[in-house]
Amino acid sequence: MKRLLLILRLILGVIFIWAAVGKIFDPAQFAENIDNYRLLPYFLTTLTAAILPWLELICGLLLILGRKVAAASLIIIVLNCIFILAIGSAVARGLDIDCGCFSAGSKVGWVRLIEDFALLAVAVVIWREARTLQAR
């Protein structure tokens, strides 16, 4: 069980770092991607484009290092819920836009939703374990 949790942590960490890096290099492109969702006022769009990738990067690193795992996984849970709502609303509105999930262009759609639900599940498992460790 311990080993499984370690592997899950590493996988989730790497995925989040991978997702973060491309966006960190190109915030302007990421801002355009967020803007296409037509969900946030423009000010929050630009702020999100600058900060969200770093949040992903830091949380990914912490998961890999095994530090502050409870906090990092909780942030990832919240982020994934937001991603699911955003992508879900884009799918529901029939928007045909780039997801902005990873650096390479990928369209919003059911596959992206399923991916995010899977990541959410992994994050919840990690979070629960980290919480019990912290409570001890």
Binding site: F25, P27, Q29, Y42, T46, L47, A49, P53
Partner: peptide, 21 residues
């Protein structure tokens, strides 16, 4: 930390986004 690093990195990145309304 994400706020500080994000805003700082964005400010020096030539592909940074202009924060504004």
């Amino acid at each position: 930390i994400a706020f500080v690093l994000g805003l700082a990195a964005n400010a020096v990145n030539p592909r940074g986004v202009k924060i504004g309304f």
